[in-house]
Computed example of a mutant assay.
Amino acid sequence: MPLSTPGERDAPVPPDDAGVSFVMPVLNEQRYLRRAVASTLAQDVPGPVELVVALGPSTDGTDALARELADADDRIVLIENPAADIPVGLNRAIRASRYPTIVRVDAHSELASGYARRALRTLARVQAANVGGVMRADGRSPFQRAVARAYNSRVGLGGGAYHGGTEEGPAESAYLGVMRRAVLDEVGLFDESIRRGEDWELNLRIRRAGYRVWFDPRLEAVYWPRESWTRLVRQFRATGAWRGELVRRYGRGNSLRYFAPPALVGAAAVSAVTAGVQLGRRRRGRSWVLHLPVAGYALLIALVALGRGGGRGWRDKAWTAAVLPSMHVSWGLGFVWALVRGARDTVDTSRLDGRNTPLP
């Protein structure tokens, strides 16, 4: 029988064979698109299926590959997303879709076998408006594998449910998301003024409307992180900036874990100023205690890198030790900047150059 929580509304449950619309915003994803599309269309679900791909202004041959894939499979629908922004592309894809259940897919991800069928069962069982699962980050190069280890670590991204949770239940947000179209139409689609964190904001509105957002750890999708240090830093700075913007807009609705990176940036600033003052004095007094937060953080990173979570060899461990603070500091700097000035027109530029080569 469907679960029911007092004070919450049940999302509508369409017939099993009513159909599923997968939606995928794409920008400079030639390297990953073929596999993402293959894992999506391999999903075995009752009823008709379509994959609506919103094509941004790519410069790496993504559009040509997308047309090739669409010519080979009439379930693929191509639409234009000249704005390039993810929420705009998602909304365009949803509006162009035909079926009552929407499955968001990232071109940097690959859905596990049975993902969609299991999600549909969970949606119907708990009558949720949105259900998400676990992001399993993976990598092919030493650097990308280090980033994946950071993603999968509680230290790396703060231990959110979709980074390794094991207990099913109500959630703050949902990775990717399998959503009921009727609820999206009721609460509004993605907020196009939010360029990062748009999923969190949508799920906030879903929850405020009384519907359930659900986490199911049996749902898994592989995620391929950025392939270089500069792209990683650009991505995390933009992500941090938009989280700072979301804090400006929604305040206490944000989890406390989002404040850890800006706290690190603040502690590092205090430590640097203290060190400068100490250099000009012979007697340092007790001001050394102001260095303890940064020293503790450095020790934590060293323990993670040298432990099992740091990889197998010294090369892996060195990359892990470099990647973790790169993610935290760039995210924290973006957050602080946006908290003071707002995210404004901050864009994730990590996919804009389009210099990718196809994967084997």
Rank of each mutant, 00 (worst) to 15 (best):
G61E: 02
S58I: 03
I94R: 07
G56I: 00
H108M: 06
L90T: 07
I102C: 12
G56K: 00
E68W: 05
T59F: 02
N81P: 07
I79F: 11
A54T: 01
A54C: 01
V77G: 07
R95I: 14
V105L: 06
A64P: 05
V103I: 14
T62L: 01
V103K: 09
E80L: 06
N81I: 07
E80H: 10
L69D: 01
A107W: 04
A93S: 12
A93C: 11
L78K: 02
R104C: 03
P100F: 11
L55D: 02
A83W: 00
V103T: 11
I79C: 06
I79G: 05
P87I: 13
N91P: 11
D85C: 02
S58T: 03
V77R: 14
P87K: 03
L78Y: 01
T59D: 10
R92K: 12
E80S: 13
P82T: 10
G61I: 02
G89E: 02
N91Y: 06
V105S: 04
R95F: 07
D60N: 01
R104L: 09
G61L: 05
G56Y: 04
P87S: 07
R75I: 13
D106F: 03
N81S: 00
I76C: 05
A96N: 13
Y99R: 15
I86G: 08
L65R: 02
E68A: 12
A54V: 03
D71K: 13
D74M: 09
L78T: 05
P57L: 09
D85Y: 13
D63C: 10
I79Y: 08
L55R: 03
A83N: 03
P100A: 11
A107Q: 01
L69K: 01
R75F: 11
P57E: 08
T62E: 01
L65K: 07
L78P: 08
E68V: 05
A107Y: 08
R104S: 04
T62D: 00
T62I: 05
L78S: 10
R67S: 02
V88F: 04
R75S: 15
P100I: 13
A96M: 15
N91F: 06
I76T: 09
P87N: 07
D74W: 13
V88N: 04
A72V: 07
N91D: 07
A72W: 02
R98F: 06
